[in-house]
Design a protein around this nucleic acid. Structure first.
Lengths: 332, 332
DNA sequence: CTGTTAGCGCTTTCAG
DNA sequence: CTGAAAGCGCTAACAG
């Protein structure tokens, strides 16, 4: 493994000059540069990232913390973050947060060891109180979520508005009894979706029955269990709104296994618009989140935060209700 | 940011002693250790990974190269790799290979810069000739795939045997005209699956018609296009074997859109057994790959390779044909 | 335009 | 049991 010293020796120059040519910084006589380049080629020299890291006290690595990498929507955002990160010379260190049992405290240790330059969270648990101290010390941005009253850069869609769109659509189809299969209660976007649900109901002069709100974990099994339970309890509902497509898949199966047809008996709406949403049976009506755009803005904001620029805090991107075939007019 | 020098000064010892206590190496008098621990706590000192990296010429980071992070099966393997990696003190740097346009050469540069200690590939393109040179220089293991005649540690299932299982099952149900929706031709596991397909056909005294073999990219759209084309060409087939569940989802929709029922008109088999395979309609018959086990072995082998131990090369794990409801007896 | 020099934060001989 | 000192590979002043 050739080092900068080897190159310097072979080229007959100082290591400073070699550094100048590899970083294209400062003046180097053309002829000297050629000698150095030749030596680099001859020795198959590649500057060590480790040496640079130490010297510059940075790693060029951003940690991406996700709730559940198995969810295609999450994968899509991560993929795009990687893409943009690379264009800025960064790499991404992936961490699955919940499922792998990494606590906020452990995450903290991670940055403290300066193995990374900062982090992008794809999830924001309200209980993550350490957010504030974390983001005060290291570049942090929230993607897909935001934490109110905290001055942390974030980019997401407006979950309340998106839920309102879904609810208005369902209400317009005549549905009055709508099950909400929500995420964990301490999750910010779950909270917003619940708010949207409540607001829409109120606007329609309907009362929110807490029994109609379920908290699922992010698996089809979990949604299946929630809907099955509602069915067994003989709750009366004609529509189900799931806060992710993955959940919707489980809900649809529960309905079917109970002998119900989607959408003629019960309408179902998902969230995210993952790649197979259109391929399910029935094609899923869902809320599209702009994964690529979220990733792009998240990375850009993160770079800004790194540069000490104050990012405009909560950036809200446009969602879109994608109407396919999993909803129908309520039968009279 | 406190450094080891600060701790040494506060504790009234040398930095060598501080190093000894934080690494628990060598002898340190109990009382001295306590003083150092107190100083560490007081200063909120955390040893810098960067400093260690340089000193030890290693990063404790393993790059995981995946074909398509959006595929839940891939996500599952990655998730487990991260889990095991962390238990060994490693973190994972994620790279999506194909879709993000990272070439093998770029990957090479990456290791050359020693930003990582080695890599685990979840995909093996035959064209990746650089594999050999790569693995000769840096710890490399292949997960989910293997490259024959190359002395690279690998862990995967036996794709030929798995395909044989699927084909025997389909053949036993009376199917004779079976579409194979395969992956890219230069992909090792695609090649093996094609082999299994051919062998099963030969054993049954059937000829392989190349028109029945499609090459899809890893999206439901792609499988949809393949099956639609077969349908438009009025090819006669009663079963479709897709080399991933993601593909199967697209195939099923193509069949449905053509007015065909799955499984009564056409049987469909997938591969991977992703989390929602059981929740699809119909529940998908598929080949389960042991994602967690693959990840575990991959990480273990990688550690062995790092340690210079010669891993027993191709490790083959058990697959399992999961029979659900997407296949039926061929109608007479 | 180029070289000398001083570290970045840590681990590891080597002495004592 | 502890300290001094060397140095991992690189960049960035600072001189010249």
């Amino acid at each position: 493994m050739a080092t900068i010293h080897d190159v310097a020796r072979v080229a007959g120059v100082s290591i400073a000059t070699v550094s100048r040519v590899i970083n294209d910084t400062g003046y180097v006589k053309h002829e000297t540069r050629e000698r150095v380049d030749a030596a680099i080629a001859q020795l198959d020299f590649h500057p060590s990232a480790i040496g640079r890291n130490l010297r510059q006290s940075k790693t060029n690595i951003v940690m991406v913390i996700v709730p559940e990498i198995t969810n295609p929507f999450v994968g899509d955002v991560v993929r795009h973050i990687e893409l943009y990160a690379r264009s800025f010379g960064y790499s991404i260190l992936l961490h699955e947060y919940m499922r792998n049992g990494m606590t906020a405290e452990q995450t903290l240790r991670f940055v403290e060891a300066r193995r990374i330059d900062g982090m992008i969270f794809l999830t924001a648990e309200a209980k993550l109180k350490e957010f504030e101290q974390l983001s005060a010390k290291w570049p942090t941005v929230l993607a897909c979520e935001y934490v109110d009253h905290l001055a942390i850069a974030s980019v997401s869609i407006d979950n309340i508005a998106a839920t309102l769109d879904v609810m208005h659509y369902l209400l317009a189809l005549g549905h009055r009894d709508i099950l909400l299969v929500n995420g964990a209660a301490d999750n910010i976007s779950s909270r917003d979706r619940l708010r949207g649900y409540r607001i829409a109901l109120e606007q329609a002069g309907l009362a929110l029955d807490p029994a109609y709100v379920y908290q699922a974990v992010a698996t089809p099994e979990s949604a299946y269990a929630c809907v099955s339970q509602a069915l067994r309890a003989e709750m009366c509902f004609t529509a189900v709104f799931c806060v992710s497509d993955v959940l919707a898949i489980g809900a649809i199966k529960a309905l079917r296994d109970h002998g119900l047809n989607v959408p003629t008996d019960v309408s179902v709406v998902g969230f995210d618009d993952i790649a197979f949403a259109a391929f399910l049976d029935p094609p899923l009506t869902t809320v599209r989140q702009p994964a690529g755009e979220i990733a792009k803005r998240a990375m850009e904001m993160w770079m800004q935060v790194c540069a000490g620029e104050s990012a405009q805090y909560p950036v809200l991107l446009r969602h879109e209700l994608i109407i396919r075939s999993s909803c129908a007019q309520k039968r009279t």
